[in-house]
Design a protein around this nucleic acid. Sequence first.
DNA 1: CCCTGATTCGC
DNA 2: GCGAATCAGG
Length: 219
Amino acid sequence: MSWTEERIDQLKRLWGQGMTASQIADELGGVSRNAVIGKAHRLGLEARPSPVKGGDAAASGGSSPAAATPAPEKAAAPPPRPAPTPAPAPVSPPPAAAAPAPAPTTPQPIVRSIGPGGFQRQAPGEQSSPIPPAPPRRLVPAKPSAEMADKTSLLDLNDKVCKWPLGHPGEPDFHFCGEPINPGFPYCLEHCSVAYQAQLPRRDRRPPPPLPFGGPRVR
DNA sequence: CCCTGATTCGC
DNA sequence: GCGAATCAGG
């Protein structure tokens, strides 16, 4: 697996949502949690509560089987990591050049936007409670549109419906057939006829058609 | 033991 | 740039 644009974007979002590196790696698939952590650091996504910080490192006796550096530098040079970068300071909204006069005399109704998990976002300027309820840590995919409401999504697959894919993964209307299966097969009768064909004698076989694509689909 | 993130370093 | 190996705390 490689870090495509989509996967990096997903890593950023999930990391920002507080998912652990293991969860993210599991979500992305094809990568280890170490890969996720390493990538997150290279992207500069640090500043996560780490179980390990400060403290004296490798102070106790050498019980470890492999100590790459037996710490000669420790006695000679001071620890070269004195910059923990306290506040990465996320993007702050750029103040408008001409600041509008903040004098709405008429009481405005509080307008809140809806977050990805369905929770109400805090309105600008609205006070938050001292201990705000934590948003859901793991967001489950939802039907993005009414058009998909009756379509069979990946999560709708089970042993009773046809798993024949329609469209391509990543496309907005990608879904599965969903018709009742031909018993004993993962597809319905119609798609079984496409997926399985009787073995003909060589002399009666059609020459192999050209591949419908030149390789993996690139988006 | 399990989990976590941080860091190193060979590729 | 990537990620396994390693470290270190909970």
